[in-house]
């Protein structure tokens, strides 16, 4: 089921994935204008009521701009677009989006972004780490300058997750680097790992 940015109806979906790419030209800041699209008003309200929402890449940026997740994403510290197979460590499995993984599990999925540097103030970073809300961290070197190697975070309730790398591109052995990304989606439908 595809939702359309100009249509505020969520059409009774059980979960929402905000995909990556670009939105509204990424003018002003990535996700800053998408946040005010008609569909986002409905998604923000539903997310506060517990609807599972996963934001990937630009979707993560939109969730931060919507204040459903803390922090922000800025230009990569090395100023270049990055596109690579990225190793991650799953840090928190207390979310429907990560429940198929085991804590500490290492996975490889694609990473491709120009503005993927996760930033927040020290207090927020401490709080995220202290409450187990960092869901994934970069391994083998920090690819974009994200503070504390953070690749993904979740909200307090766990239903909202933002992730900079792309699990949806690692769900099929034929076309991806592997199938490590599948776990992010199987948890929602109750399929055993």
């Amino acid at each position: 089921m595809s939702l359309w940015h100009a249509d505020p109806q969520l059409h009774d979906v059980d979960a929402v994935i905000l995909p990556g790419g670009f939105s509204y030209g990424d003018y002003l800041r990535c996700g800053a204008i998408a946040r005010f699209s008609p569909v986002m008003g409905s998604i923000i309200a539903a997310a506060r009521d517990g609807l599972p929402v996963l934001g990937i890449c630009n979707g993560f940026q939109i969730l931060c701009e919507s204040h459903l997740l803390p922090g922000a994403l800025i230009r990569n510290d090395h100023r270049k677009f990055v596109c690579k197979e990225q190793s991650l460590r799953i840090e928190s499995v207390d979310s429907p989006w990560t429940s198929q993984f085991s804590a500490g599990q290492e996975i490889v999925i694609p990473l491709k972004n120009g503005e993927g540097g996760f930033v927040a103030d020290e207090h927020t970073l401490d709080e995220l780490e202290g409450s187990g809300r960092v869901i994934a961290r970069y391994l083998d070197g920090n690819p974009n300058g994200s503070y504390r190697d953070i690749a993904g975070i979740r909200n307090e309730a766990g239903n909202v997750v933002g992730l900079m790398p792309h699990p949806e591109h690692a769900v099929e052995a034929l076309t991806g680097v592997g199938t490590d990304g599948l776990g992010f989606f199987l948890g929602l439908v109750g399929v055993p790992a």
Binding site: R75, N76, D77, H78, V119, G145
Partner: peptide, 10 residues
């Protein structure tokens, strides 16, 4: 001030 500015550095 605490946020890195890669464009400024360029």
């Amino acid at each position: 001030p605490e946020i890195l500015d890669p464009q400024g550095q360029a």
